[in-house]
Design a protein around this nucleic acid. Sequence first.
RNA 1: GGCGGCGUAGCUCAGCUGGUCAGAGCGGGGAUCUCAUAAGUCCCAGGUCGGAGGUUCGAGUCCUCCCGCCGCCA
Length: 514
Amino acid sequence: MTFVITTPLYYVNDKPHLGSVYTTIICDSIARYKRLAGEDVIFITGVDEHGLKIQRTANEKGIEPKSHCDEISEVFNNNWKDWNISFDKFIRTSSKNHEFVVNEFYERVKASDDIYMGVQKGWYCVGCEEFKDNPENSSTYKCPIHQKNLEWKNEENLFFRLSKYQKEIERIINEPSFIEPIERKNEIINFVSRGLKDFSISRTNVKWGIPVPGYDNHTFYVWFDALLGYVSAISSDATEHSLEKSINGGWPADVHLIGKDILRFHAVYWPAMLISAKMKVPKKVFGHGFLTREGQKMGKSLGNVLDPDLLLTKYGNDPVRWYLIKDISLGNDGDFQDKRFVDIINNDLANTIGNLLNRTSSMSRKWFNNKVPNKEKIFNEKKLENFAKIAVENYIYNFDNYKLDLAANEVLSLAINTNLYLNDNQPWLLIKEKDNLPLVKEIIYNVLESTRIIGLLLIPLLPELSTKINDQLGSIYREEIPWKKQLIWGLLVSNSSLPKPTPIINKLEYEEHL
RNA sequence: GGCGGCGUAGCUCAGCUGGUCAGAGCGGGGAUCUCAUAAGUCCCAGGUCGGAGGUUCGAGUCCUCCCGCCGCCA
């Protein structure tokens, strides 16, 4: 089965911020999980490059929009590589293939009689690329989001007959898992119930955009253009009949994972556009929350913007992933707290999981000739085994339901219980009596086996750490065996050698000022 | 202004259809094993569940009003 997952196509106005890193990390985890589960994953990310804002930003820098986009796109592309993001497609909306797709799509929508010429008058925020209400009706009124003056526009635009799809959109958004989380769904339902209005899909006097065929001076509205990036990404390697290639190549998307601010475009406008073009709608739109820092909104005015690059170089990939995935419930807003970050990483990853591996490996090596002991069945109790089975089940259930925080907590919980198991059985005391040797073997085997499963469960969440766990268990991961099969208890091979353990993650030091 | 939501231990939050619901994690305090990254394990939170009424034999859990946050829409 093909599984298509997308991040938003990030606007190239600025380099990636923590929010884009958050979205992308979540998608990456899901993509990795789905691959392990045997799905044929197409993980799409990319950049949204057109629009008045980009045009002006480029002008301010005194360069062509194209050069500006080339530069920022490259920053994004490299950034995701630095974060070890396993994306399959990186789509640029300024690419030729994308333009083909947009044109083909537009023809389909036109053929459905959903395009007409109208007049758009109103106050426009270039930051939002949207028309806004202007209660003061004055040129000094500022957009509440961007704190920029609105601009008066009165121009002929092409419109899309969104209103025609009122009924169908209502049906779609009411489907059980189309919009998540549920609070967001209610907002959208509420919005749609007030009646959908046609929206303009072209702009005049915006040069930096895809020209609308047959209308000089008109370029496609950035949103009309950008949303189609998800489609064109699928066929980005193809050379002709691009739209058809995308449709056959895996469309529709299984999930668009986005920030809650752009939910309306994805859950209302986008499905309508797709229906008009006789295409399938995405199966799910998941709007995650926003990140704050130490309880405050991040912003230039407060000067508290947390640079993800800094986090990456200072703490590394996996700690940031763990914090964002495990400590923030997907769909809720999250807060990044330096102290908490350090505490969580040290407790969960270093002390609980890292140290578990370290202590177990040490015991096994010390007592069993640097090897995994035989799988004895003296005691034959299955406490840990049973716990691991349940943890695996819960993990899978939660992952399948986009509850990544709970999935992560299952892994942690297994590690905690494994530590507890050691504590209860105290093999370091038992080993003092020769007669206990078989029993100690059984205990240590169980603990190593549990650790192996922890490592497997961590693959989608913490790719680097899980690799280290695997290495220290003697590189026992078997590519040829499906991941889910490897999760079965008891596959750890007795008498395989264990390398000398070293900490798989070092503790972090808390500093007042990041 | 219209509609949603939220306000539970220092912090982040669980608490479905009312009766072990007063909880978890982190922080803080204490005890303890020793295999281990001074890690592990165990114990300790006396919080009027925002406030005031009401329904009920009984309410964080339902209703009304008030206060304080926040979201969506206008």
